[in-house]
Structures are given as C-alpha cells and as structure tokens.
C-alpha cells in the first residue's frame, strides 16, 4: 500500500495533475455559481409571483407554486438526465457544462424560491401598510422597503444552500462533465491509487466547502444582530 503510493507519487504530484484538478475544480465552481445565481433570480421571480394578488396572475401563481413544490421532489440526477435529453431539441450545441448549469438552475430555482419567500414573509405586514398609506406603488414598496429588509433572512440560508449545492454538482459527472468528482474517477481509471485520486478530490471539496460554509454561518450571526443593514 505505502509502496504503491510512494511509487506513484512522482507521476501524481505533477503540474499536469494539478492543472487537470484545477480545471475540474473551476468547472464545479462555475456550475454552482451560474446555476445558483440564475436560480436565485428566477426563484425570486417565482416568490414575487406567488405573493402577487392580481387576479390575472392567478394561473401564474398556481404554476409557480407547482414548480416549487414539484422540483423539490425530483432527484437532481433525474433532472440532469431529463435536461440532457430535452435540451437536445433546442440547443444541440450547448456544452455539457451548460446543460449541467441549466439543471442546477432548475433545481436551485425551486429551493431558493422557498428561501426568498420565507425572507419576504418575515417582513411584518405593518411595513407594507406603512408604504401603502404613503402612496408607494407595489413595486416601490417591494424594492425600497420589503426587499432591503428581507436580505437579512434570505442571505444566510441562500448562501448555505449554494455551499451545499457545490457537493450536489458531483452528480454532473454522470453526464460526462469533467468536474471534480469525475476528475477523481478519471485519475483512478488512469491507474492511480484511489487514495490519491479520490483523496485529492475530497480535500479539494473540503477546502472549497468548509470556508464558504463558515462564511455563511458568520453571515447569519452578523446579520442577526442588526435589522437595518
């Protein structure tokens, strides 16, 4: 065991391996950032639609609620496979990374929409009435009063969700996206000891996820103190 590790060390600890893992790491990050970023915006749109009261938006409210409820009940792996094959009809040239990013977006939209909704609902109804009687429009009261006050409640769980999703993107390896998890498997298939291949990948995930997780926790304690900033 030790002999094998010693023998493989010179071939494993090379610039090529580092570059290969670095590229894979950047793909993992890219999928998470694009998917969760787009998912956050779309999730916010869905949350706002669900809060709306206008009669003509009733069908949109039902669809938004159904989307949020249903997409949190389908495994990410199944979403990935469905997106991979569905997207073929629209954008056969889209890269696998792009396909994975769309799948992340679809899943993240559902989860982040719930987080945003909880944040918007945490703002007391009295604040809305305060804006209302001053003659602010619904849009003005949303952007100027409700949203600024809900960040405090939205940001910590949203950040925690994104950190969690870094790990879920490992499933994109099934599509053939050479992200971190797949890169580990490729290294092992190339003949390296699993201790090297998977060990390196586990360490990289940890180095990515742990500090970001701590940051999300710090954000939570910091934002909990003050209500106005």
């Amino acid at each position: 065991m030790i002999d094998r590790l010693m023998a493989e060390a010179p071939a494993f600890f090379t610039r090529d391996t580092a570059a290969f893992l670095g590229l894979a790491l950047s793909r993992t990050l890219l999928m998470t950032v694009i998917g969760c970023g787009a998912g956050f915006v779309l999730g916010m749109v869905l949350a706002v639609v669900r809060r709306s009261r206008a009669g003509w938006l009733a069908p949109a409210r039902v669809l938004a609620a159904a989307y949020v409820e249903l997409f949190r009940r389908i495994p990410f792996l199944v979403i990935l496979i469905l997106v991979l094959f569905s997207v073929q009809a629209f954008a056969p040239d889209l890269s696998l990374l792009g396909i994975a990013a769309i799948a992340v977006t679809l899943a993240a939209t559902a989860y982040l929409s719930e987080i945003v909704r909880a944040g918007l609902e945490s703002v007391p109804r009295a604040q809305v009435e305060g804006a209302d009687v001053l003659g602010l429009s619904a849009a003005q009261s949303f952007w100027l009063v409700i949203l600024p006050q809900s960040w405090r409640v939205i940001l910590p769980p949203a950040a925690a969700f994104m950190v969690m999703f870094i790990k879920d993107t490992a499933l994109a390896s099934h599509l053939g996206v050479v992200e971190l998890a797949f890169s580990g498997k490729i290294l092992v298939n190339r003949g390296f000891s699993p201790l090297y291949g998977f060990g390196a990948v586990l360490i990289l995930y940890f180095l990515l996820s742990w500090p970001l997780g701590r940051m999300a926790a710090w954000l939570e304690t910091r934002l909990a103190v003050s209500r106005h900033r």
């Binding site: 009295a126 604040q127 009435e129 305060g130 804006a131 009687v133 001053l134 003659g135 602010l136 003005q140 100027l144 009063v145 600024p148 006050q149 209500r227 106005h228 900033r229």
Partner: peptide, 27 residues
C-alpha cells in the same frame, strides 16, 4: 389624508430622515 400607526411602522432599513423623505420624493 395620512395616518400614524400604533406600532409606528417605520421602515427599519432606512434612517429617520430617509423614512421622511421617501414618499415625497417617490410619489
């Protein structure tokens, strides 16, 4: 016509001055 509430309903994310200036500027 304007109203003052029992619970003040001041916008927590704004300073006192910003609370006062918001509606005249925006509406």
């Amino acid at each position: 016509m304007s109203i003052v509430f029992q619970q003040f309903n001041l916008f927590q994310n704004m300073t006192a001055l910003a609370n006062i200036c918001l509606a005249p500027v925006k509406t």
